[in-house]
Write a protein that binds this DNA or RNA. Structure first.
Lengths: 167, 167
DNA sequence: TTCTCAGCCGAAGGAAATAAGGCATGTTTG
DNA sequence: CAAACATGCCTTATTTCCTTCGGCTGAGAA
């Protein structure tokens, strides 16, 4: 009541309140999560248990969603990275998104504004496998009449982590 | 000399030789890398040190590129996910890609075939910040005369890991 | 002032990662 | 064929790290 902090939270996903140490900690973990709490503590000028508590809090706050291993797709039989734009005029497709998730080649599924309603990030062994994947997608109920076009990605670079260093 | 294994490596990024346990191990680590070697060993029917050796080998083979924390962008002041298509007719832009990497909102930089030569995956606080980002991009040397258009992503779903379960 | 709370520290216990030695299987070499 | 080797695994042992606990300190509220 004394504070009017609740006035500035119009969003559904409320942004977490983070101080500078939280942000640098998140940045460090986003680029390499194998660091020990002792090492992180040295960088943050904190004791290992203090770092541990912060990580624990960030985890159960949902800021840290998971810890995963980043694999090299080109070493795993899928060197070809591509984006598939799907022109879906019908909104009924959303019910068939689960079918797309079953395709192992599909890494990301985006519903985007603009001409194409969907944008898929896919990874295949070669162009033939990409063609096969396209055929498989268009055989899914809800994608039968849709058109799609492919954009091969010849380069990829991971940028910095999405930690907002500005306000 | 007796074996002609070196005949079958025409690719620059040679696919690693993996057995079934390697693949399931990679799949497990790609979805959650916090599991202990003991737990992984139970799932793979291996002892903890055996799992450790496999992970170590996969790491120095480059199959596992890194271990990172996955952050929730919507909790970090950047709830808006978008794709920026940039029409760059000049190939001289490649020398200015480093400037794009400096922008904290840019998560991925793809050089794709098709009409748009570049595809950026970006994350901003709101549409105003997105406009500002666009302006900043077009002020970069090499992107001065280029055109771009935005596609907001209203949905995102991470698919399975890029571990090829087929041959 | 006094109370409470949040965040940090140091110590301690337990759990997990890592290293070392030995064994079995399959492959190359003499 | 037999010997030497390599590979992959297991068990044991050591060390490092994670995790919990109790107490301390400073900020804010009563």
């Amino acid at each position: 009541m004394t504070k009017d902090t609740n006035h500035v939270r119009p969003r559904l996903a409320a942004p977490a309140r983070l101080d500078d140490k939280d942000r640098t900690l998140l940045g460090l973990l986003a680029e390499d999560s194998t660091r020990s709490y002792a090492e992180l503590g040295k960088l943050l000028h904190l004791s290992p248990p203090a770092v541990h508590e912060r990580v624990k809090r960030l985890r159960q706050d949902g800021v840290i969603k998971a810890n995963v291993a980043v694999l090299d797709g080109s070493r795993l039989g899928r060197p070809l990275l591509a984006f598939v734009h799907v022109d879906t005029t019908s909104w009924a497709v959303t019910r068939h998104l689960l079918a797309l998730k079953e395709l192992p080649e599909v890494e990301e599924i985006h519903t985007v504004t603009g001409e194409s309603a969907m944008l898929l990030k896919v990874r295949t062994r070669d162009t033939q496998a990409l063609e096969d994947l396209l055929e498989r997608i268009h055989s899914i109920e809800g994608f039968k009449g849709t058109r799609s076009y492919i954009a091969l990605s010849t380069y990829l670079e991971r940028g910095p982590s999405p930690v907002a260093d500005d306000q």
